[in-house]
Design a protein around this nucleic acid. Structure first.
Length: 298
DNA sequence: ATATGGCCCTGGTTGC
DNA sequence: TGCAACCAGGGCCATA
């Protein structure tokens, strides 16, 4: 399931490949409307827009769109390819007119392909680009969501919770101290932290040595900070490895990630803990399968 | 405020 | 072997 590292990997991939390209034609397939914005309105809004930048916010992929200025839309030049990143917001990113917001749900994929590439089953959206390529949204389970925002009428998308990669020690304590719910449930709550899902909640709790059922308000300051740092390390490590491919996650080029090879507890029920050999235990918490080491995690 | 369970949806697994 | 029942789970909602 795509969480922060997977979504970050996809957003970077799409940004690198499609920045400066232009949406020429949009096709939406499917019967029901699994979208937050009606397909017809999305298609109207998307067609003709240039892709100024693509980035991640929480588990959402945000495509910043604007009018094509004619300079790069047909043939994105190589020198422009990596010029503007988050650190140096260039002129192109300064005044987007609209946003296309993609949430991948459980099984969503965002793929950059050639028009000749065979259409995967459950392809729900296909954006034809001036460069001749296509951006496709594929989602068998249909838990994903697509939204179009006209920024002259609505505010830009913002995640409800703090970014787990940048949250400070003080913010982290303020987020969890006043509450009394299982820390795992709190980590999954996107209104507190945006981007953490089942895999990285379990993995960060293991690395911090904290049991998933511990109540947030009962964690010591040292434990909370261990957790904050463990979370950041796990997420950054996973981003470096291109995410975790557990079900059918792939990046924008259809390539699998490698962080699933580094999982210490997730989906390792009954297997020996990599640190102490105790069998990994699985419980149900907040309706989610939850994995931990009963010896390493207190 | 927090917990629980249903819903969506399909592919993979399990059971007979 | 074949088919049906079952289940996972991100986000959201209603209910406890």
């Amino acid at each position: 399931m795509p969480e922060l590292p997977e979504v970050e990997t996809i957003a970077r991939g799409v940004h690198e490949r499609l920045r400066g390209d232009q949406i020429v034609e949009v096709w939406f397939g499917g019967h029901r409307e699994p979208f937050k914005t009606p397909a017809a309105r999305q298609a109207r809004g998307l067609e003709g827009q240039a892709i100024l930048a693509v980035h991640r916010t929480g588990k959402h992929i945000v495509c910043e769109l604007g009018p094509a200025d004619g300079s790069v839309q047909s043939h994105p030049s190589r020198k422009n390819k990596d010029a503007a990143r988050v650190e140096h917001p260039g002129a192109m990113e300064s005044n987007p007119a609209a946003q296309w917001i993609v949430h991948l749900g459980m099984t969503g994929r965002l793929l950059v392909t050639t028009p000749e590439a065979p259409m995967a089953a459950h392809t729900h959206a296909r954006l034809s680009l001036a460069s001749g390529r296509e951006l496709r949204f594929v989602d068998p389970r249909r838990f994903g969501r697509l939204e179009f925002r006209d920024l002259s009428r609505s505010p830009g998308f913002s995640a409800p919770g703090a970014d787990p990669l940048n949250v400070t020690a003080e913010e982290f304590v303020q987020l969890f101290r006043p509450r009394r719910l299982a820390i795992k449930a709190a980590l999954l709550n996107q209104k507190l932290l945006s981007g953490v899902g089942n895999i990285y909640a379990d993995e960060s709790l293991f690395r911090a040595g904290i049991r998933p059922r511990r109540l947030t308000g009962r964690l010591t300051g040292a434990e909370l900070d261990r957790l904050r740092l463990a979370l950041r390390e796990v997420l950054e490590h996973a981003i470096r490895l291109g995410g975790s491919s557990v079900s059918d996650y792939v990046d924008a080029d259809g390539v699998r990630g490698f962080f699933q090879l580094e999982h210490c507890v997730y989906l390792r029920t009954g297997l020996a803990c990599l640190r102490c050999q105790t069998p990994i235990r699985r419980i149900l918490l907040a309706g989610r399968g939850t994995h931990y080491c009963p010896r390493c995690q207190m």
